[in-house]
């Protein structure tokens, strides 16, 4: 298996505040992996380490086989980054930015840049500081894609954008996947929009990976069990596979990670059960089940 993105044991603290603790995974070519986490979970720090903007305290990262700290230029030529922060010169317009950036990227494609600007309705001759937040983001994506990157790192690519711009960005990303086979690692706390796009989901909480699983498998393996009991109960007993639970009179409900009928039956054996229903959860619901009650530091 090829490891387009790979990292192990990545650890980073800011002062005495630990932000990442020993995180690692590998992402194969052409995959789309979503990094979900609440504000302050450490998503941006991980993206910055992968792009080589900061170094980790411990652990290794490699993109396309290159250490971003040791080969910053080559990594930046072959990896595109779009983040919430706009780092473009405010007095330049898209035309000027292209003239300025194109020589730095060996595979820069002028035609592709024009196509992305046109399809996402970015005016090529308006200064960056006169563009809306959404248009700036689309310009950043157009610039990143014009360099024909093999990997795209997207840090909150849809954060703070309206529905139309979100749609335009997702459509552009789908085109990059189908036409260029790019590998995408994206961080977001807006899960719904990316539910259709991510092959795999990583949930980051308190600097560690709580979940790293294929999206379809995750949807399959996390189930909600709702039961009506003969007699009211106070609480659902603790169980290592129960992510969240509540009891309300004769109604109990719990979310099982790694659902099997046997596990559910074993838990239900605590009570005299009148009726049971098992249902699936949406990706946002799964995210909440894993992370609710786990306040992040910021």
């Amino acid at each position: 298996m090829d490891n387009t993105i790979a990292f192990t044991g990545l650890t980073k603290s800011f002062g005495r505040l630990p932000v990442l603790r020993q995180v690692g995974t590998t992402i194969g070519s052409g995959q789309v992996v979503g990094l979900f986490g609440r504000n302050g979970a450490g998503k941006t720090t991980l993206m910055r380490i992968l792009y080589g903007m900061i170094g980790p305290d411990a652990g290794q990262a490699s993109l396309l086989g290159l250490d971003p700290q040791a080969h910053p230029v080559e990594v930046r030529q072959r990896v595109g980054l779009v983040s919430e922060e706009c780092h473009l010169y405010p007095w330049m317009d898209a035309n000027a930015l292209e003239t300025f950036l194109a020589p730095l990227y060996p595979k820069w494609d002028r035609e592709l840049f024009r196509r992305h600007l046109a399809s996402m309705e970015v005016p090529p001759d308006r200064r960056v500081d006169a563009l809306s937040r959404g248009t700036k983001r689309k310009l950043m994506l157009s610039l990143a894609l014009a360099a024909q990157p093999e990997v795209l790192l997207l840090d909150e690519p849809l954060g703070g954008l309206d529905a139309v711009v979100r749609e335009q960005i997702v459509t552009t990303l789908i085109h990059s996947l189908t036409d260029h086979g790019v590998t995408i690692f994206l961080s977001t706390h807006e899960i719904e929009q990316f539910a259709k796009v991510c092959d795999r989901v990583i949930i980051l909480s308190h600097g560690g990976f709580l979940v790293d699983r294929e999206t379809a498998a995750l949807t399959d393996q996390v189930r909600r069990v709702t039961a009506t009991l003969e007699h009211p109960v106070e609480a659902v007993p603790a169980h290592p596979q129960i992510l969240s639970a509540r009891a309300h009179g004769t109604q109990v409900e719990f979310v099982l990670n790694g659902f099997t009928q046997e596990t559910a039956d074993a838990i239900l054996a605590n009570w005299k059960v009148r009726e049971v229903a098992v249902s699936g959860l949406t990706l946002p619901e799964i995210f909440i089940a894993f992370t609710a009650g786990k306040e992040e530091v910021s």
């Binding site: 052409g30 995959q31 789309v32 749609e167 997702v170 459509t171 789908i174 085109h175 996947l177 189908t178 036409d179 259709k196 796009v197 991510c198 092959d199 379809a216």
Partner: peptide, 15 residues
């Protein structure tokens, strides 16, 4: 085609 359907549904082509 996988490509056309991916674009139409806005779904990852791998899916």
């Amino acid at each position: 085609s996988i490509r056309d359907l991916a674009v139409e549904l806005k779904v990852n082509p791998n899916t």
